[in-house]
């Protein structure tokens, strides 16, 4: 089994340390942190194997693979819809360091897997101003009537392709951004959020 013997580096250095950005008075109305230490794997069902894959995943992970833009989590593994017959699986890298190989070994008959753990930067955004700030870049209706915890959307944020999902009603949203664009994404988020005061806490 391989190790991560080389140092890992965030694509957004600004998210690696505590800071308060923008408006300084009052509590920060936007809280941002990078989610690090995760394994992420893309899954695409083989032709005609979608049903078998769903059955096998149910057996292995006690999860119904969603057929609509939703996220389902159990036992520390989350599966997110990522397009027709496609998903991404996210889990703790410390527990599943070679998650893609694990999945290939267990489910390789039914689907193709591609390691994406390094391809995306995951950024968590919460706080009372989060919907307002996100609306400046994401052309989606995130009103509680339209978007709820565990809803997922593939869209763009400030012209950058993202996957976005909600994890709680606080509300907390997570963005998965292509690593190369993560810094530009942060520039947009921090510019738009400054008026509300942003608290950055280092990766978790």
């Amino acid at each position: 089994m391989a190790n991560r013997t080389l140092e890992l580096r965030s694509a957004v250095p600004e998210l690696s340390r505590n800071s308060r950005i923008g408006r300084q008075d009052g509590p920060a109305r936007l809280v941002v942190s990078e989610m690090t230490g995760l394994s992420v794997v893309s899954i695409a069902a083989r032709k005609g194997q979608s049903g078998s894959l769903q059955g096998a995943v149910k057996k292995l992970f006690k999860i119904e693979l969603p057929n609509t833009p939703r996220r389902v989590e159990a036992g520390g593994v989350a599966f997110l819809w990522a397009g027709p017959d496609q998903w991404i699986a996210i889990t703790d890298m410390a527990v599943h360091p070679d998650f893609d190989r694990e999945l290939v070994a267990k489910l390789g008959k039914f689907a193709s897997f591609t390691d994406q753990g390094d391809a995306r930067t995951l950024i968590r955004v919460s706080g009372p101003a989060s919907r307002e700030v996100i609306a400046t870049g994401v052309p989606l209706d995130l009103h509680p009537r339209a978007f709820q915890p565990d809803d997922v959307a593939l869209t763009h944020a400030s012209h950058i392709a993202v996957t976005i999902w909600q994890i709680d009603e606080e509300p907390t949203f997570v963005f998965a951004v292509a690593r190369g664009f993560a810094r530009s994404f942060w520039h947009w988020l921090s510019d738009s959020g400054s008026v509300h005061g942003i608290e950055v806490s280092p990766g978790t």
Binding site: A44, G48, T114, A119, R179
Partner: peptide, 15 residues
């Protein structure tokens, strides 16, 4: 559409 082929972009996965 009848081909069994899956495509995933991995541009950003690899340095």
């Amino acid at each position: 559409p009848d081909l069994d082929v899956q495509m995933i972009s991995a541009t950003e996965q690899w340095a």
